[in-house]
Design a protein around this nucleic acid. Structure first.
Lengths: 233, 233
DNA sequence: GTCTATAGTTCGATAGAC
DNA sequence: GTCTATCGAACTATAGAC
């Protein structure tokens, strides 16, 4: 309580109620609209309309479209990655080594579960995730780096813990490729249904997830075996 | 120099030279700009500027932005898929069955080779492909369906030819997941370099391709083995 | 906090001369 | 075919009342 100092700058920012009904409604609306139309295709007008607020209110809370996009991403990415980290920590701290299958499931399940929250015709946020992960835009790459690289490193470590013969370089490839496999599930384009005449439904999460785990673990083990044989003189 | 007749309607359309220097320059420019900024982020102004033509000329040749996007996609997709079909036909018509590795290589190599043509800092068209393949936009899904579904079915057939124990449903999943793995290569975001401290360079096509073939074949064979065991009573 | 109204920009597309 | 010039619509962001 010193008396003299001139400015109290940060106060106005922190006194904004960030947990109001409208605040969350805007984030929810943003998630749906960004998922449907992408960052450039989405408009602040449509987000405001869907959230049932004035467009200016979005700017009051989030300033720019870009910052709104980051706030929406941060909210879901944190939820997803906290869940992933918790499952993974439990797995690697258990008495016996976890199975590769369990780790791969920990990699994907929280993303689908969280993505279901607002899902209308197919997981909202997980579709945004796919476009962020594949983008060349510095905005998106920075989001990936900030919100997803730390947890990625933990999964890479887990791969190596389970398969000590896997060189770190190949563990990184294993991670990248597995994420690629997961994209199939997260994008939910409906293509598998078209190609299979209906047999493969990318809306049936549990069916697809079990197939993905088989495929990804097979892929990772193939990398392990290849290196193992290469080291046999 | 006939004097009287009023209109000569249909001629103007069909006499358009579709192979002129400027016509191709527009498609080349569109490829670069769409790759960098996405469909919604790209502007006709920037494409015109990069092609060094007037904006109106693009509309003269391609009418709308959407049709320009399709024309650009068609040009490269046809080149890629003709190459893929040729390699695949040769493989399956040979005396002995091809290896799974050879088929998977046929799946990916033409995309990278063709993508290299205009590549500046990383494969132009292959990046567009990634966003088309993961999009929910009807425009993109129609392009996938028109230009990529037919060849996809051929590769699925080849999987089954090589692995007769693989049910069609799982062959479709195998295809979808393998395409997902390939996305990692085509997106070229540079993330693997970040996660590996430089060891994994997604710009080194040959290195990445050899790792992808190992991983994808391992994944496909895991699906085969899983079904084989499930059928053993 | 939340609104209405609008400023200022950029975009896709077209008209019309050459 | 190719250009210049421009229209009308849509967008992000802000000003200012309550």
């Amino acid at each position: 309580m010193t008396t003299i100092n001139a400015l109290e700058p940060a106060v106005r920012q922190s006194s904004r109620s960030r947990d109001g009904k409208r605040f969350e409604a805007i984030l929810d609306a943003a998630e749906i609209v960004f998922a449907n139309d992408g960052f450039n295709g989405a408009s602040m007008r449509e987000i405001a309309q869907r959230a049932d607020v004035a467009q200016a209110l979005i700017h009051y809370h989030f300033d720019t479209k870009e910052k709104l996009f980051e706030a929406m991403t941060a909210r879901q990415a944190n939820a997803i990655n906290n869940a992933r980290a918790a499952i993974l920590a439990k797995l690697v701290s258990a008495e016996s080594l976890p199975s590769l299958e369990a780790v791969v499931e920990a990699l994907f399940r929280p993303t689908i579960e969280t993505g279901k929250r607002l899902a209308k015709g197919g997981g909202g946020f997980s579709r945004i995730l796919v476009s962020i992960a594949n983008s060349h835009d510095p905005r998106d790459q920075q989001l990936t780096s900030r919100y997803y690289d730390p947890i990625a490193l933990k999964f890479i470590d887990a791969f190596i813990l389970i398969e000590p013969d896997l060189p770190r370089k190949d563990a990184v490839w294993a991670y990248m490729f597995s994420i690629g496999v997961g994209m199939t599930m997260m994008a939910q384009t409906g293509r598998s249904k078209r190609l299979s005449g209906g047999a493969c439904d990318d809306g049936d999460i549990e069916d697809m997830l079990s197939e993905i785990i088989i495929y990804a673990c097979g892929g990772i083990r193939a990398l392990v075996n290849q290196k193992r044989e290469a080291n046999k003189p």
